[in-house]
Amino acid sequence: MNTLMALLIGILYASGMYMVLRRSMVKLIIGLALLSHAANLLIFTMATLRRDRPPLIDESETALAAPYADPVPQALILTAIVIGFAVSAFAAIMIHRVYQTTGTDDLDQLHTTDS
């Protein structure tokens, strides 16, 4: 399964990067979303994939019985997902404003402002 996940992550990264490299800002956003999926899956895969061993302590136990899916990366990813949402929202709305102000969504036409 790792191999399959590795392939999947690679393709997610590649397509996200390709989208980010486009000149359209809309594609940039979609690319960002794909990249964040890729990153989350990357962390998830790095910490051993386990089926049906969620990090929940059984009613009968006082500690998590091994083997369990690592809770630390999961906490990490959970935050990352939410932050990713905030970033996407922020970026999307910024692009919306940029388009309203400049009338273009071509990134290459925006470069004069900062050089």
């Binding site: 590795a6 690679g10 590649a14 990067m17 490299l21 990357l42 790095m46 690592d70 990366p73």
Partner: peptide, 22 residues
């Protein structure tokens, strides 16, 4: 460029031993 990047990430996942975060 994207394919190279994706390929690298795949390679990294494959190369990292799975219990790094254990």
């Amino acid at each position: 460029v994207s394919l190279i990047f994706g390929g690298l990430m795949t390679l990294l996942v494959l190369a990292s031993s799975t219990d790094i975060l254990d």
